[in-house]
């Protein structure tokens, strides 16, 4: 059967509401993300598409606020253009017949932002970019591509979560808690976060080192809590990513991942990214949680915009990283 014939068959099956059978290694691999009938996949992808574009729009206006406030060397005019384009994409995503065009328009805005910020672009932006690239694949004909896109999004999310743990292993700073000790030494929110586990004199010692001096250190503490916590982080990240891909453990792994990401990102004061990644994890749960929670996140984003422009408190929680 040719590819055109397969796609025609897929469209007729979709119209009939029949699940599309998997073929080949690629489909089987993607299928590990779960079985979805086309209505379920369509609902999840549609809600996630609206969320992603809302996130992109808000993040873009926050970037503009940051660039103006900190004189980041980026053109405010071009940032505003990108924000307007992505916002228009979000607007399109709300109209059922035109929703498929929303991500395509937003992609143009994202490309402009990438061009403006590269090679300093923050990793959080790439997560958003890859997710929008995937939802762009949903075409005009409903219930044709949503299963492919949904599985792609779920695999992408699991891979990123897995790698955030694997990279910690590869760099070797988490076995003894050295990275956490280093960050405590830099002061600020990490020092506050670990004040319960590290004695004050140890914190003072870590903060006395100058990190741009050869041989500064040792950035290591003997408190078992720090070592246990440090190792637990990457074990959880990698372990949960694997468990997300197994049907029996998927829902529990998703809930645990959402909790883990929320705690870590709140501690890091990166609430905007926390909302993005939590929404990428919601499709792993049974039920239309992306759709159910969309109003809540919309309110949260309105608050974030207000806080960034000084209208509401809490601006220190929502500074989106840009460069």
């Amino acid at each position: 059967m040719s590819r055109r014939e397969r796609r025609a068959e897929a469209r007729s099956r979709a119209k009939a509401g029949v699940a599309i059978p998997e073929r080949g290694v690629f489909d089987k691999f993607l299928g590990l993300a779960g079985d979805f009938d086309t209505d379920v996949a369509s609902g999840k992808v549609s809600a996630l598409r609206q969320f992603l574009l809302l996130h992109g729009a808000v993040r873009s206006w926050l970037w503009l606020a940051l660039a103006v406030e900190h004189d980041a060397g980026l053109s405010p005019f071009l940032l505003a253009v990108a924000a307007a384009v992505i916002s228009a994409g979000f607007g399109l995503s709300l109209a059922p017949r035109l929703a498929y065009l929303g991500p395509r328009l937003a992609l143009a805005g994202l490309a402009l932002q990438l061009a403006l910020t590269f090679p300093l672009t923050d990793n959080h932006f790439f997560v958003e970019l890859l997710a929008v690239l995937l939802v762009t694949l949903v075409g005009r004909h409903p219930k044709c591509d949503e299963t492919l896109v949904l599985r792609g999004l779920m695999w992408m999310t699991a891979l990123i979560l897995f790698h955030t743990g694997l990279q910690k292993v590869l760099y070797g700073h988490y076995v003894h808690g050295d990275f956490l000790a280093f960050m405590v030494g830099r002061g600020g929110r990490f020092a506050d976060l670990f004040a319960f586990a590290i004695p004050a004199d140890e914190i003072a010692r870590l903060q006395s080192y100058n990190p741009i001096l050869t041989d500064a250190g040792p950035y290591r503490v003997s408190e078992p809590v720090v070592t246990i916590l440090s190792n637990a982080i990457y074990v959880l990240e990698m372990g949960l990513a694997v468990l997300l891909m197994w049907g029996r453990t998927r829902a529990v792994a998703a809930c645990t991942s959402i909790l883990l990401v929320s705690v870590i990102q709140l501690g890091a004061r990166e609430v905007v990214f926390a909302m993005l990644f939590v929404n990428l994890l919601l499709p792993f749960l049974p039920g239309p949680w992306n759709r159910r929670l969309l109003p809540f996140f919309a309110v949260a984003y309105l608050w974030a915009l207000g806080a960034a422009w000084g209208l509401f408190p809490g601006s220190e929680l929502i500074t989106p990283t840009m460069l």
């Binding site: 990793n123 695999w155 891979l159 955030t164 694997l166 990279q167 590869l170 760099y171 988490y174």
Partner: peptide
Amino acid sequence: AGVWPLIHRGLVARYDLNPWKHSGWAMYST
């Protein structure tokens, strides 16, 4: 998402690329 981070790790080691950038997913790793 899945293979490039391993290449990125090599580029960090060889060319001192910033581990916190370029979608290597290594923020907070080093």
